[in-house]
């Protein structure tokens, strides 16, 4: 097992969370983009409500640009990518230069997409780089704790986002099972109260999504 400080364990988990946030959000953003073209132009209002982020956008077009690329907007995809980058940069010695390079490239591609005539197509490359980053971690990093700290962070974020978007129960349970699996492998301490609260909410027929989101946000204490 490697030697990991509290600060670094935190960085690894948040690296997992932010990379997942960018990846999953990009997918949802692409679907929303498509929907707003000719079906539901105001869908962005609902999107902001779901994620509980301030609706600072004046129109669908404004949302499409600012939500993706505005680095002054702390909720934008690009701001979240920079947070992934910030957490990755300080972990070079743990995750390897080769893995880190994919996050560097995701940032580079995001910058390119920002000035492109066709930003949606270009964003595919950002997603590809994040996928490659996760693949590289699996390939290059031998340490089981490091790999699983990133994975548990990813699954917490995925469950959080799925809850906010009101996804199917089956999907939510699958992510929770993976949190348990990766969390055990990473030897993280789950907060018992929130763990059982989340398990209970996901099992009962009338899940209280707000309670479940609060529980998943406080699932791990470091």
């Amino acid at each position: 097992m490697g030697i990991i400080s509290i600060e670094k364990a935190n960085n690894l988990m948040w690296l997992g969370r932010y990379s997942e946030r960018v990846f999953t959000t990009l997918k949802r953003y692409e679907n929303s983009f498509d929907m707003m073209l000719d079906m539901k132009p105001d869908f962005y209002i609902e999107y902001c409500e779901r994620l509980n982020i301030p609706n600072v956008y004046t129109s669908a077009d404004d949302f499409i640009r600012k939500y993706a690329y505005d680095t002054d907007n702390e909720d934008s995809i690009f701001s979240n990518l920079y947070r992934a980058y910030d957490n990755a940069l300080v972990m070079r010695d743990f995750i390897s230069s080769d893995s880190l390079a994919y996050i560097e490239m995701a940032v580079f591609e995001m910058k390119k997409a920002r000035v492109s005539d066709s930003p949606l197509i270009e964003l595919q490359i950002v997603r590809d780089n994040i996928l490659a980053f996760w693949g590289c971690i699996d390939d290059c990093v031998d340490d089981i704790i490091i790999r699983n700290l990133i994975k548990v962070g990813r699954r917490i974020e995925r469950l959080d986002l799925c809850l906010r978007h009101g996804d199917e129960k089956q999907e939510l349970k699958r992510h929770f099972e993976q949190i348990q699996l990766y969390g055990t492998r990473a030897r993280v301490q789950f907060d018992k109260l929130n763990y059982y609260k989340l398990a209970y909410e996901l099992e009962k027929p009338d899940t209280d999504y707000k309670v479940a989101i609060e529980a998943v946000e406080n699932l791990i204490k470091m």
Binding site: L100, E104, M105
Partner: peptide, 8 residues
């Protein structure tokens, strides 16, 4: 130079 940027 592009690769140097890639590796940060």
């Amino acid at each position: 130079n592009h690769l140097l940027a890639r590796y940060g």
